[in-house]
């Protein structure tokens, strides 16, 4: 027995840093997709470590539906200011104004689906040849089949049945003009790993991951945050409860958890005990059994 053991978080960190350095080496104009959620914050932290003491060689991009938790946007802006990186906010509202997409109507309307067009347009406009995302394979069954380096054709589409085999730790990012890659540096992390790492590295998080009192209403068994642009259905009423976010997405489709968790330790306890997957609280995945697969094929994150 030798002493050269590594712990799971060390190994995951090493793997992700390796992937981030491959991206910087293999692509000319890579962009890091940044939503302000925990996965993108961890990815950002890993990128900072990968290139230290130099600045990370990536631009950041937020596909902004305009329906955000205010706390996330403030956190995002502070993080980029402190680290001296550039962030592009690609606005779904602009895609709507230009007539590129048509907004869904009614109380269940969400801009989630519309993000795909905004994302693909931004990739074309800025000539990005690689977009990194914080997607994890444990999140969802279509994501479990995703590669670290995922090839996209000229239409930005994913062909899950015809993916390049990925062997050892060799990543093939070769592509033709107009094609691009999606790269997922934290593919092998679970929700638990992410929180454990945040605790270990003492990474600052947006306040809405911790318990706070908020105006909420219940729809189909899920607690949603009330906001001026949310349309209530009959029988739905706004209450004030102690909640926290388990994932952060667009406010229209992010389910909140009733929680008293005030610390990272509390959150880890909660994640360990929960019986519902993280995306179980995401209305965007509940639309059908293959909602994620269908969106991903079209070019979603």
């Amino acid at each position: 027995m030798n002493n050269y053991t590594v712990k799971h978080l060390q190994e995951l960190e090493a793997e992700s840093i390796y992937v981030l350095r491959e991206v910087a080496s293999q692509f000319e104009n890579p962009v890091m997709l940044f939503s302000g959620g925990k996965d993108s914050i961890v990815m950002f932290h890993l990128a900072r470590k990968a290139f230290y003491p130099a600045k990370m060689p990536f631009t950041l991009m937020h596909i902004d539906t305009g329906h955000n938790f205010q706390e996330t946007i403030e956190f995002r802006d502070q993080l980029i200011a402190e680290n001296g990186v550039t962030l592009i906010a690609a606005m779904v509202q602009e895609s709507i104004d230009k007539g590129r997409v048509v907004e869904e109507q009614g109380p269940d309307a969400s801009r989630n689906m519309l993000q795909t067009t905004t994302l693909l347009d931004a990739i074309t406009e800025h000539k990005f040849d690689c977009a990194m995302g914080g997607g994890r394979r444990d999140e969802e069954k279509a994501r479990a089949k995703e590669r670290f380096f995922s090839h996209r054709d000229v239409f930005g589409q994913w062909d899950p049945k015809n993916q390049r085999p990925e062997l050892w730790n060799i990543f093939n990012g070769k592509k033709n003009m107009g094609e691009h890659f999606r790269v997922f540096p934290i593919s092998n992390w679970t929700e638990m790993d992410v929180w454990q790492y945040i605790l270990q590295e003492e990474i600052e998080m947006p306040s809405i991951y911790y318990t706070h009192r908020r105006k909420v209403f219940n729809r189909n068994g899920q607690w949603l945050a009330w906001a001026p642009f949310m349309q209530l259905k009959e029988n739905e009423k706004v209450e004030e409860l102690d909640v926290r976010c388990r994932t952060i997405g667009d406010i229209t489709c992010t389910g909140l958890t009733l929680s008293k968790a005030t610390s990272l330790e509390d959150i880890i306890q909660e994640v360990a005990a929960t019986r519902i997957t993280e995306r179980g609280g995401r209305a965007d995945d509940q639309r059908s059994e293959s909602a994620m697969e269908d969106r991903k094929r079209e070019g979603y994150f």
């Binding site: 053991t5 590594v6 712990k7 799971h8 978080l9 190994e11 995951l12 454990q196 605790l199 270990q200 330790e265 880890i268």
Partner: peptide, 15 residues
């Protein structure tokens, strides 16, 4: 890492 192991050992798993 010392800090981590105070939190009940779950940070110290092998993969």
């Amino acid at each position: 890492q010392d800090n981590g192991s105070q939190h009940g050992g779950y940070l110290d798993m092998e993969l």
